[in-house]
Design a protein around this nucleic acid. Sequence first.
DNA 1: GGCCTATGTGACCATTGGTAACAATGTGAC
DNA 2: GTCACATTGTTACCAATGGTCACATAGGCC
Lengths: 225, 225
Amino acid sequence: MPATNRKAAPQRETYHHNDLQTAVVARAVQLISERGGPAFSLRELATSLGVSHSAVYRHFADKDALLESVTALGFEEMGRYQQAAMTRADETPLGQLNALCAAYLDFAREQRGYFALMFHAYPISDATASARDLHNADALDTLVATIRAAQDTGDVIPGDPERLAAYLVLAPHGLASFQAQGHVPAFIARQDPGPLSSDWLARLALQPLLTAPMTPDQIARHFFS
Amino acid sequence: MPATNRKAAPQRETYHHNDLQTAVVARAVQLISERGGPAFSLRELATSLGVSHSAVYRHFADKDALLESVTALGFEEMGRYQQAAMTRADETPLGQLNALCAAYLDFAREQRGYFALMFHAYPISDATASARDLHNADALDTLVATIRAAQDTGDVIPGDPERLAAYLVLAPHGLASFQAQGHVPAFIARQDPGPLSSDWLARLALQPLLTAPMTPDQIARHFFS
DNA sequence: GGCCTATGTGACCATTGGTAACAATGTGAC
DNA sequence: GTCACATTGTTACCAATGGTCACATAGGCC
């Protein structure tokens, strides 16, 4: 036998795998995360689960269908990042805004694979598009409420909160998009006096909306005390 | 003969193609532009040029090498968009800023294929990364100078021009990234009272930097007089 | 003309996404 | 229990793809 040029399939003793569907998605998530995108073959995925590649087609119409499932999980995960940011942030609305931006950037950095599927795929599938709209509807409520609160405390400039929210999404998304690609342009990266941190980047995006933006001096003192 | 399931190869009468390298890149640009990304096979490219697929390997080490050449052209093209924006814009610095942002968005929309190669590929190749840095160095000079001018006229809020430039790149890039994927989130799209135009989107990104942001009423009057 | 190099060809390979006929297993009706 | 049937998995197969190699053709230079 030519035997194993791939890692030996973990032999299972039962003929049926009992929850192959879940196992396939889980492994796909893992592979995508490891490789920063859907750079795996169905065959290697199936083999690594000790299953023939055609078994996968019992559970997913094709590879795209599998990727859509994974993408949907990505939006859920992103929602969890957002919620965690809200609960973990200090109590000021401005702190929360900062945490929300930072969470977006953390997600793009830590979950490259998900981010690529969610935002760097073309053409975007209908399923992904509606998953995104659903996520946005939720996320927007939180964001707008937080902006309103930050306006009430006088930290954020006046204006229609939903409009400000639109700005506040675009800049972090732009940054996240660079970040996800693994190469933040130098002239942006050097806005950060230290190693790139999400908190820093979030602050950068937020500055234009602040009634009292920090001076470079203040920033240096605040972060490198 | 099974004959042509693909479009018949345009027969050439000379054995040598005389400038296959150029022809390959040109056709690759065309295919990428038509399909919004590198969704073509070397074989179909070669066949459409009336050449065997292995001929391509005389001029490019592999497919990635070809894509890198195309990507480099993308940065050149983007530079032209930027320059055109500067010369075509009305004479006020603010108008120029708006035109620069709009040009970025126009590029993302009109040159989806280039944009995808340049900014939505992962991992980014070294060649692409340095092409980008080169482009950025040029583009940044223009941008910073324009921002400075707009600050002098009092249209743009004070602050380190390079920092403002960083923001001004991030927001349009975020927008462009959505746009390139063909699905601008609803809550962002509805900031625009009319059909999505780059000019509108540019204005959206610019608003937070303005000393006198427009009201929705003003915008409506300005665009739908 | 003769030689060397550049360029193109066809045959071949392993891998990939996908399909289909078939085999093993679970399940519900009787 | 067992018998039909739907699930789930397997093997064998297919066409397309990126890539390599030995070979063919052409151009340039002596």
